[in-house]
Simulated scan of single mutants.
Amino acid sequence: MGKQHSSVKVLTAGVIGAAGFMIAGSFQSASAKTITVKSGDTVSALAKKYGVSASALEKTNHITKDRIFAGQKITLPGTTKTTAKTTTKANAAAAKTTKLSSTSTAKTTTSKTTYTVKSGDTLWAISSRYGVTVSQIKKWNNLSSDSITTGQKLAISASSAKTSTSTSSTTASTKKATTKTSSTTATTKKTTTKKTTSSDKADAVSSTSTASVASYAVKLASEKIPYVWGGASLKGMDCSGLTMYVYQHAAGITLPHNTVSQESMVSKHAVSKAQVGDLLFWGSAGATYHVAIYIGNNEYVAAPEPGEDVQIQTISSYFMPSFAGTVNS
């Protein structure tokens, strides 16, 4: 009877152990570490051997009262928890990356508008209205010169600010990375500014100054200033007196009161290449007799002749300038 009871006990332990293995197996990942019970092994001996607690070993494999048998597969505790934790961190990192990518895509948009040229418009005036440069407008519309016509459609693009914001959002993965990137960007901007300043000094007159010259000339054209030979004031002026007065007050550049003398202060080029703020000359080089200020759109401001006021005129084949010149600073 004692022998039969012993067999039942072993069989029960085997069933319980096998059931425990099946249940444990369903909760462990493929990477969980398992061991095979050998004859004579005990829970406490295995726990000591693998550096785990006996209770944890029993709980992980659903073993009760140290009942294990030879050939049984036992999972060491702790493997599943580590795997799950690692997976969770990896998923969180992936989700964060996806969120940043989505933000960047959503903000990188380009806003475009179409402007219809009106009478009296110039590329400089339009660029000032939209906060862009004349060069950008010419590039967007494939323009080879500053000439535009009334009713012409111009594409205006404004996306730089939004793109910049998007880039900042995308690179903000960590605090340290953002700080480092911002510092690098600031340094780059500082270097760029220095280079630009040096370049401007080497050029004739900056685009800002020439734009101011054109704008001021247009303003004078609306003030009914009469032509006065030898004049160079708001009470009256002649052609070279006009150019001298405008450049002095709008750009701080002193020009001589004579067309031939003003020739020596410019870099000469063809009328077709005239830029806003350039001087237009009539007559051969060294013997010019008339000068005006180009304002773009094939137009210029001049003090024409006695009996007429300072006014805006259009370049025509009947009274065509001989050459243009950019004033040297």
Rank of each mutant, 00 (worst) to 15 (best):
T79Q: 15
A70C: 04
F69R: 04
L279R: 01
N328K: 13
I225S: 07
T210K: 12
M237E: 05
D200V: 12
G241L: 00
G230M: 04
A292G: 11
V291T: 10
A186R: 07
S284F: 01
G2P: 09
G71F: 04
S127Y: 01
V301F: 08
T86M: 10
A158G: 13
I148N: 06
L57Q: 05
Y115M: 10
K59Y: 08
S173N: 08
T288D: 06
A93Q: 11
H290R: 03
A250N: 02
L57Y: 04
K219W: 04
I253F: 02
S261A: 15
D41M: 04
A70V: 08
T64Q: 13
G277A: 06
T110P: 03
K33L: 11
T184R: 07
K201Q: 14
H257P: 09
H257R: 07
S272R: 00
A324P: 07
K48R: 12
T34H: 14
Y50V: 02
A106I: 08
E263C: 05
D309A: 08
D278M: 01
V205R: 06
T188Y: 09
I23L: 15
K107V: 10
D146H: 07
F281Y: 08
E305N: 06
W229A: 09
T34P: 08
I137E: 09
T314E: 15
T170G: 02
T150C: 02
Y247R: 05
G307I: 00
G131M: 06
S233G: 04
E223M: 12
G236L: 00
A45Y: 10
D200F: 07
S128W: 01
S135Y: 01
A94N: 11
S183D: 13
S240K: 05
P226R: 00
V218S: 14
V327R: 02
S206N: 10
I156T: 02
S31T: 14
D41Q: 06
T326E: 14
T79R: 11
T34D: 13
K65S: 13
Q262N: 02
A202C: 00
S215W: 01
I295K: 03
S316K: 03
E223Y: 06
L143M: 13
S26Q: 12
V228Q: 07
D200N: 11
N141I: 00
